[in-house]
Design a protein around this nucleic acid. Structure first.
Lengths: 153, 153
DNA sequence: GATGGCTTGATATTTTATTTCAATAAGGGC
DNA sequence: GCCCTTATTGAAATAAAATATCAAGCCATC
């Protein structure tokens, strides 16, 4: 778990406001559905699956079908508001949506909390590794499994 | 594609022999099924899906069910003979089965060929990144998408 | 208020992976 | 060799994750 003092409601709100603003700048449509899905993805710091989002989304309202969720997620990923965690078939809110980038993550194998690494040095190393092996660089995923500080104590 | 002169039959054979030897050392059972699945995974350098293996395996003999393939793959992965490419839901033969390690890969977005990187420097950087962020290191996946040298020419 | 494009709804299907229990095969101790 | 235990494979069903397709709705602009 994150720090218990962590005000997660504020965290969600910031993410939503930030996304709202970015969409206005880009003139992309941050529809109610997309807002709601982003909110649900942010509802915990742990990665959430598309079908979990589906279930939450369907609560207390007309049920939605999988494509509805996947399309919203596709949009949010394209805008950089959400990252997909490949090793978990899950999704997490991006901690730095203003700058488009790949997700490089650490995943706690105990609490399943995810921490995003935005270190440019790491990114450079990865990009260089590709070039040294004769590949042009397009994008990359890095997912490190380990145990976070809180869980080790 | 890899170098056209690449003798892929020899490549498969080496992988099988190497696996055979390692299993003898470890006293694990390299059964005919597991051998056959490893051979099929190695049948191309591109990643192969479990269901593609299933189909090849079922050719000209009694059809097998998905768990048969997945169990064989689980064994091969546990022994380090095969890696899973998370971003493609696919599997590739390991180029260095003697040393257990994570797979760090580059994936060509044109020819879909996969190159495994066994650079310890890269591994060190990743392990350090985890520690700097307060995580203990267990394992990691790195999958870089780009265009390989051959495809750029 | 018609047009065209994006967005969502709805249904069906595909792809990927696992659960469960039964049958078979392999190795260890006697 | 024969029994016992355990590992492996077979078989059927199901679960989980994702996509294809077409219809309906919304919205901006003319």
């Amino acid at each position: 778990m994150l720090n218990h003092k962590h005000d997660h409601d504020a965290c969600i709100e910031t993410a939503l406001e930030s996304a709202q603003k970015i969409c206005e700048e880009r003139e992309t449509r941050f529809t109610p559905l997309r807002q709601r899905v982003l909110e649900l993805v942010w509802s915990k710091h742990e990665p959430i699956t598309a079908y979990e989002v589906l279930e939450l989304l369907s609560k207390g309202q007309k049920k939605v079908a999988p494509p509805t969720v996947y399309r919203a997620l596709d949009f949010l990923i394209a805008e950089g508001f959400v990252h997909r965690i490949e090793s978990l078939n899950s999704f997490v809110g991006c901690s730095d949506p203003a700058h488009k980038h790949q997700g490089h993550f650490m995943i706690c194998t105990k609490c399943r909390n995810v921490t995003e690494m935005n270190e440019s040095s790491l990114h450079n190393v990865i990009e260089n590794a590709a070039k040294e092996n004769g590949y042009s660089y397009e994008n990359s995923i890095l997912e490190i499994a380990g145990v976070c500080e809180n869980c080790r104590n």
